[in-house]
Computed example of a mutant assay.
Amino acid sequence: MVGNGSRAAIISDRRITGLSADVITELVAEVGPLWHERHQARLESRPRKRAIGAGAKHQLVFIDRLLATLVHLRHGATHDVLACWFGVDRSTITRAIGEVRPLLATRGCTITASVRLRTLAEVIDHLGASGQTGIIDGTEIRVRRPTVGRKDRKKFISGKNKQNAVKAMVLTDASGRLLFCSPAQPASCADITHARQMGLVKPGRRPGRGDPCRCRLPGPGAQTGGRVVTPPHRKFKKNPPEWYEEIHERQRKAHSSRRIRVEHGIAHLKNWRALARHLGRREHMSDTLQAIAGLLSHQQAATREAGQTQ
Rank of each mutant, 00 (worst) to 15 (best):
M1T: 06
G5K: 09
G5L: 07
S6D: 13
A8T: 09
I11P: 04
I11S: 11
D13R: 12
R14P: 00
R14I: 07
A21E: 13
D22Q: 05
L27V: 06
V28Q: 10
L34R: 13
H36Q: 12
H36E: 13
R38N: 10
Q40M: 01
A41C: 02
A41R: 14
R42T: 05
P47Q: 08
A51F: 12
A56N: 13
H58D: 13
H58R: 14
V61A: 11
L70W: 05
H72R: 11
R74Y: 03
A83R: 03
C84N: 10
W85T: 12
I93Q: 09
T94Y: 10
A96C: 06
A96H: 06
I97E: 05
V100E: 06
R101D: 09
L104M: 10
R107M: 15
G108Y: 11
T110P: 00
I111C: 03
T112V: 05
V115N: 04
L117M: 03
R118C: 10
E122Y: 03
H126I: 00
L127E: 07
G128R: 10
A129Y: 05
S130K: 09
Q132V: 00
T133K: 10
G134R: 07
P146E: 06
V148D: 12
R150P: 00
D152N: 14
R153T: 00
F156L: 07
F156N: 03
N161L: 11
Q163M: 06
A165Q: 12
A165D: 07
A168F: 14
L171W: 09
T172A: 10
T172H: 10
T172S: 13
D173I: 01
S175N: 08
S175D: 15
G176E: 11
L178D: 04
L179K: 04
F180Y: 15
P183H: 06
A184V: 01
A190D: 07
A190S: 14
D191C: 06
D191S: 08
D191F: 07
I192P: 04
T193A: 14
R196E: 15
Q197K: 09
M198Q: 12
L200M: 10
V201F: 08
R205E: 11
G210W: 08
P218G: 06
G219Y: 08
P220F: 03
G221K: 07
G226H: 02
G226R: 03
T230W: 14
H233W: 11
H233C: 01
K235P: 00
P240Y: 07
P241A: 04
Y244E: 04
Y244M: 01
E249D: 11
Q251G: 01
S257D: 09
R259Y: 13
R259F: 08
A267E: 05
A267W: 04
L269P: 05
L269D: 01
K270P: 04
W272I: 00
L275I: 01
L275T: 02
A276W: 06
R277E: 15
R282H: 02
E283T: 06
T288N: 11
L289H: 08
I292E: 06
A293I: 00
G294D: 06
H298S: 14
H298K: 01
Q299R: 00
Q300M: 12
Q300C: 01
T303F: 08
T303G: 01
R304P: 00
A306R: 15
Q308K: 09
